[in-house]
Design a protein around this nucleic acid. Structure first.
Lengths: 216, 216
DNA sequence: TGCTGTGAAGTGCTTCACAGCG
DNA sequence: CGCTGTGAAGCACTTCACAGCA
């Protein structure tokens, strides 16, 4: 019928690895390394050298044959490819323990991800000042961010309130969501939801341990 | 040469989905639903019905043909398959913002994941009491947990101290690690490391947004 | 010579399609 | 009849292997 522009479809796994490459390259840059070739970079990221080269090939040719990659310019190339070389405005919904920890995590601001509005539906929290921002009522989200262009919504509510938080974000025109609540979210097609769920990882570890114990 | 017992190799993706199924089944159970078939369950988790059936098939036959799955007994079956139907003892390394948020996150304890020892290498924090536990020096980790069997280590240090934290855990015989620090960890073969990295997810969202904006 | 960039081969996960059974 | 459990087919990502270039 019709198909994506599909000049190139980029696997999601590639996108996630690019973030790892950024990490590794930042370390190399900090250590004063100027050139790196695909295999050592791959080692540092726990992947295969071809994988690195193929991942990069989706975005262009950044290396020099026989030499390798210039650390700084590759770093720049990847951040540009990902689109993270700019400022991002975010709204946070749910100022419990985790929400506050995220507000205090200055690495977000450092990397251009700025939380500029915070919401909660607990009447005791609404009106409180945190990090120079007033906690607003989640139901008024749409009104309060009418004038600013929020790029990303962060959900740090308890699971049972996650869907409502998401719906509020959607109706305010925010379709990119980082969800820390351990709950699946029903979202319109155009939305992008990334899940950060500690328990998924703990469960996976628990399984590994159980499995390992069985074999000895 | 030689091969794994390989009675069945279970894809890592399956393990991660099982945690999602647990979530969904808990919701269904809370809503009083007694029976569910693979397709609605799959919908709630954002996957395909066959996927659910295949994932479950790795562990046994839990359904009734023509009917579906009993919500409660499937829930039990999955938690047993994952090995999460017991108590876990964990040690936390790094009591910054995130570490404290995790200590306060009572859902961990609720699900049997108990933090029973906390460490930091900041002299100003060592000796402080948090949640009824004294913060110990990370370098003495091995000594302090000699008598208790810690199952899982949680790393919530800044990235530059993550490897040292991990090495301390390894030398104390803890080979299952949940790492919140945005850094890759070099670990022995037998170790299991799960990474929770907010920035990977933010970067992925940033990419999605950038990509979407390009097409309109 | 050394390392990138890339078609081709390999691998493993997902989806299909249907037999099997309550 | 409906839904599970599962071999077979399909698809997507990873790895190999080497041509191409500095």
């Amino acid at each position: 019928m019709f198909s994506e522009p599909k000049s190139k479809h980029i696997p999601r796994a590639t996108i996630h690895r690019l973030a790892t490459y950024v990490q590794a390259l930042e370390n190399l840059a900090r250590d004063g390394m100027e050139i790196v070739s695909s295999n050592p970079l791959a080692d540092a990221c726990g992947v295969n050298g071809s994988q690195v080269r193929k991942d990069l090939a989706y975005f262009g040719e950044f290396g020099v044959r026989g030499v390798g990659y210039n650390v700084k310019s590759l770093l720049l190339a990847i951040t540009q490819a990902l689109g993270v070389d700019r400022e991002w405005k975010m709204a946070l919904v749910g100022v419990g323990n985790l929400g506050r920890a995220i507000l205090n995590h200055h690495e977000f601001r450092l990397r251009g991800f700025n939380i500029i509005a915070i919401f909660d539906c607990d009447p005791f929290k609404i009106g409180e000042i945190m990090h120079g921002m007033e906690v607003r009522c989640t139901d008024d989200l749409k009104t309060h961010i009418r004038d600013v262009n929020i790029d990303i919504g962060i959900i740090t509510t308890p699971p049972e309130r996650a869907q409502r938080a998401a719906d509020n974000l959607f109706s305010a025109g925010i379709y990119s969501i980082l969800n820390f609540a351990p709950a699946r979210i029903k979202a319109p097609e155009i939305a992008h939801v990334e899940y950060v769920d500690f328990f998924h990882h703990l469960y996976a570890l628990a399984f590994d341990v159980t499995k390992t114990d069985m074999h000895e």
